[in-house]
Each structure stands twice: as C-alpha cells, then as structure tokens.
Design a protein around this nucleic acid. Structure first.
Lengths: 340, 340
DNA sequence: ATGAAAGCGCTAACAC
DNA sequence: GTGTTAGCGCTTTCAT
C-alpha cells in the first residue's frame, strides 16, 4: 500500500541540528528571533535531510491550504483552457496551487466538485462558465470565498465578465454595415447565460433595423459545438431564402458554418458573411480567417484569481465586477466595410 | 484574514449525537462495529451539522491526500488540454483530485512544481510532455510515484506513449506513395524528444527512397507553433526548388503551412501536399482538412492516471509502458493514393 | 459495541 | 534567543 512513505519531519531536522522543533519552525517561517549561527545550523540540517515542510500539517493548523479550486465546464474547450492557463499562472505567482475540475456543464457535477473542494479545505473557488442559477451556486458554495468568471454575478458575489450583449450587438451591426440583407443568428444552448445574452444582443441590433419583420425566424438553435454550426448552416443555406450573413454564438459553430458553406460551393464573404464569438486561437487559422468578437480568456482567468485573492485576504466579501470590453476583430469572413 | 472559518468537526458531531469521537469516525469510515441505532444517531447529527470530514486532517494521519499532480507544458495547447481532460476524468472516478501545473517547457518550472507538489503530499504525479532528461526528472521526483506521458520511460519509470518514429514514418510514406517528388520535414524544437523521434522517422522513410541525396537539405527547423510553420513554408515555397510535399512535426505548424501556401496562391493538395501530427480537433476544421497522424490525447491522459493509480497501490514500482499506435488519418490536404 | 487516549507534522503561546 | 507544550481534526490501538 506504499503508505509508510518516509517523511523527514521538523523533528528530524531539530535532532540533527541539535535544537528544538520550535526553533526550526521559526527558521522556516522567519518568525521570532533566531541567532544567526543557529539559523545556519538549522539550514544545513534541512538541506542535508532534503526537508520539505508538510503543507498538510501546516494547513491543519492555519486552516489555510494555499490551494484553490477551478471549476470549468471542460478544459478541452479552447476558451476555458485559456482561462485555466491564466488562472493557474496568477495563482502560482502567489504560491497557490489549483485543483482542476471539469463539470461538463452538469449541475450535479458542479455540486459534487464543490463538496470535494470543501473537504479539501481549498481557500477559495473560481467558477467559470457555470450554467447553474446563482442561488443554487451560492447554496453549494456555502461560506467559501469565490468568484464567478464569464458571467456577471448579480446577488452577492464577485465576477469577471464580458458584456455578451454588447459583443453580439457589435457583431450584428458589423454584418448590417457590410451590406448583409438577411442575417441569421445561430444561438448557443438555452441554459447558458452567455448564449442568452448574445441572442438578446442580436435581437436588439436587429430591432433597430427598419421594417424587419418576423425576427424569430432569424434565430436558429445551436449548441456551441462545431457540428451544430455545420448542420444549422446546411439547413439554412439549403432553404428557399438563404441568409447572406450568419452570426454564430461562438467560434466553433462559426467554423462549422464556414465548412458547410464551402461544401455547398458558396464563397465567403461574397455569398455569405460569417461572424463568430470568443476569438479562440483557431479562429485566425481557419480559411477564410474568421471575423469574431474577442473575449480574452487568459486575462479573464488571471483577473479571476486576482479578485479571489483579494477576497480571501479581506474578511469582507466586498463585491467587484471586472468587465472586459468585447471588441470586434474583422478578418476575412466578412466583407470590409463599404465607405459611402 | 478570514482565518477562523468555522468548521464543524467530528467532535461537534460526537457531542450532538451523544457518542465518542471514535464512534463517529467508525461511522464515517464504515470500520469496526457500530450498532444500527447508534449509526443512525450519528448520521442524523452529521446531516444536521452539515458535517464534512477534513481531508487535511485525514491526510495527516494516512499520509494519503487523494490528490495528484498533473505537470504539462501548457494546458492551452490542444494536445495537452486533451490529456488533462482525460487524466482528470479518470482521477475523479477514483476519488482523486488533480493539481494543474504548467511548466511552459522550462526545466526550472518543472522542478519548482515538483517541490510544491511534494510539499502538498500528493500521492503521485503525471508528467506529460517534459523536455527534461530522465535523470533530472528522477532526481526531482524523488520517491513520488509517477508516470510519464508522451514519452517512453527508459530507465525506471512507467509511461504512456506513442511511437513517434513510426508515426512519422507513416506520414512520410504516405506522402511518397501519393506521388510527391520533393518532401520536406519541418521539425519541432530540438529539445523535444517527440520532435526528435519524428525527425528520425522521417529520415528513416526517406532513406528507403532510392537515390535521395542530401537528406539534410530536406529538413527545416520549426518550433511546434503556427507561426513557425507559416514562415518555414513561406521560405520553402519561395525557394528555387520548392517542395511538393511537406510533413510538419505537428498540426499547428501544418496549419501554418496551409495558410502560407494559400497566401501564395498554391492549391493543396495539387501543388503541395501537407501532413501534420497529433490530430488535434482543429485539424479537421481547417480547409482543406488536414491529413495527420492520430495520437489520442484524451486516452493517453486516462491511461496515465490508471497506470499511476496501480503504481500508487502496489509497493513495487512495476514498470509498464503503454503504447498507443499512431495511425494515419487521410483527409483533403494530401492526394488520395493512386492505384496502379 | 463503545470510549479514552495517543499521536500524524506542524505552529504558537508560554516559560526559561 | 531557545525550549516545552498544547493543540489543529482526525484515525487507531487498547481497554472496557
């Protein structure tokens, strides 16, 4: 069972150095007074024994483990792996380690992970891309310091977010301004707050357009996945009145749209203009390069940890909402704006 | 400082249930004999107090934390985020949590993380995509159970790997069999063992070809990044004797090659055939879809944890090398094989 | 079947 | 300045 893995303890160090355990502890923590030469002796002993203080034992006393949980739907999704990378970089810079948890957008998995994290006495949690209602979340999280990423926290929590409605507005207006006559939005999953906000932004932009009847027919359901975009586009483009502009709720679906259009022999952006959302790395690699709305995953992950760090260090849960401005990145999948 | 976060302990439960702490412990661990009704009383108390046993305290005694470290160069890299997802899924299924560590391919960061993980008493480590020499690795890891992913462990460790030399051979032979006359390999970074193996495989395949002089000139340096592939291809294709086949050491570079070729007005695969390596999701989304060698990241991550799990549970470090067969995925970026 | 008590490795009073 | 000691929350003998 490999259980008795030999651990050199503070006591071993004390014995070798010929001092008391508390002295060793003082050296480790640089607390209290220790004579220069005693300190040296202790350090030599620590070196010699290759001593590593047990974070576990320290955690038991201090009630702080120096670890936090990162809850994402799926690290294999580029947007969330960027968030993970940003959060981890920020965390390690402050000496924190990060537990990776993949919820697969399932509420019960979120609950499960939150319980596990609590048992592990993590000092805080970063919850990214959750679908759970805020009250559910608050209930699961209990008294743990937390910050929500990719969604504005409304009740009682801090968050890092980007205004998806504004981003969607930008995307739609861009399609309108480049001369598209019939624009369709392929939406994300119903339960996703960001997907909903993007849909709202799209509808808001469209409603500004004079004499645009039957807005509903310009919405098409999607699922945030490549295949969803591909099949949606196939249906749309084969219909009697195909669109000449498509705003997909995320880049993955937009890329699916591009592939579908290409398989039908259509030219982008001449026959069909396409805009995505997220600005994942892939979006600038596809052909034609995808026009999209930038949402800086790495920075949002970083900011998430930094805010959490502040919360963990101040008794008060002083609320913060850090907003990242969505920006339009124009690439080849849309016509360049016509000047008149 | 939020330090006195109230924790309900086993003692609280014992008091409420009117029993001794050891009885509560027995109920939690289902060890020893506990009378049915006593057990019920305890469970009610646990429920009522919303008691969660402290993993920290248990870890201090058992010397097992139920956590492991996952060391990757960069989770934002699709291949490694797949590995991370596979490893995490497998870990949580056995009740293990996973610390995410990004080394950025830097040896000193690997050392740092390994030290941190040891301090945290992780039960084991999965090291993926390391560049460190094996002796360095062994020294840093010390007595921690570990498994290496994406590289064959030669000395004294288990590993999950895929034969990169064979994969490269397949890729190169495919290019030859589809009629390419001048094939160039854009290699990965020198320090990367997988990159080296792929280069070796390429050279082996080429050496089978009769009268192929100056093999060296058919190698071009690269860096595993999109931009590297792009610029390498630009130089190659603008030269006096441009290749008609390129085997890039990974998909990211291959996609860069495709973009470069396209920007020069070349047709793929008619003017230039391209093969990548890894079969990342993106490779089937680009246009033309990329022919590549499949290396199943998710499964490799899963297998990594499973092997580690066995090692952690058996005193003996019985070595295992789980190999994943590289397979050729033919898509649009290469000519279909001519039958004769 | 249950309780009392000794520690896991460390920190933090409190003595000296 | 340095040593002694009492826990942190839990498991685990050893009694009863």
């Amino acid at each position: 069972m490999e259980s008795g893995r030999a651990v050199t303890t503070i006591r071993d160090v004390a014995r070798v150095a010929g001092v008391a355990v508390s002295t060793v502890s003082r050296v480790i923590n640089q607390s209290g007074y220790v004579a220069k030469d005693t300190e040296a002796k202790v350090k030599v002993a620590m070196e010699q024994l290759n001593f590593q203080p047990s974070g576990i034992a320290r955690g038991l006393i201090s009630r702080k483990t120096g670890s936090i949980g990162l809850l994402v739907p799926d690290v294999a999704n580029p947007f969330f792996s960027d968030i993970a990378r940003g959060a981890e970089d920020a965390a390690i810079a402050e000496g924190f380690s990060l537990f990776l948890c993949n919820s697969d957008w399932q509420l019960d998995r979120e609950r499960m992970y939150l319980d596990i994290l609590r048992r592990r006495w993590v000092d805080g949690v970063i919850v990214a891309g959750t679908r759970s209602s805020e009250s559910d979340l608050l209930e699961c999280i209990g008294s743990l310091p937390f910050v929500v990423v990719d969604r504005k926290a409304t009740q009682m929590g801090s968050s890092v977010w980007s205004n998806n409605e504004v981003g969607a507005l930008l995307a739609t207006e861009h399609l309108m301004s480049t001369g598209c006559q019939k624009i369709v939005h392929i939406a994300g999953p119903e339960q996703s707050p960001s997907a909903t906000a993007r849909k709202t932004g799209f509808l808001r932009a469209m409603s500004q357009r004079p004499s645009q009847s039957a807005l509903q027919s310009l919405l098409f359901p999607g699922d945030f996945r490549y295949e969803g975009g591909y099949h949606a586009a196939l249906s749309l483009l084969n219909s009697s009145a195909p669109p000449d502009g498509i705003f997909a709720a995320n880049d993955l679906m937009a890329i699916g749209v591009i592939q579908a259009a290409e398989s039908l022999g259509l030219h982008i952006p001449q026959d069909l203009a396409v805009v995505g959302y997220d600005n994942i790395a892939m979006s600038s690699y596809v052909s034609p390069r995808l026009t999209t709305i930038d949402q800086p995953g790495y920075k949002m992950g970083q900011a998430g940890f930094e805010i959490l760090f502040q919360i963990m260090h101040s008794k008060t849960q002083n609320l913060t909402d850090q907003e990242f401005e969505p920006t339009l990145i124009v690439r080849e999948s849309t016509r360049s704006i016509l000047l008149h």
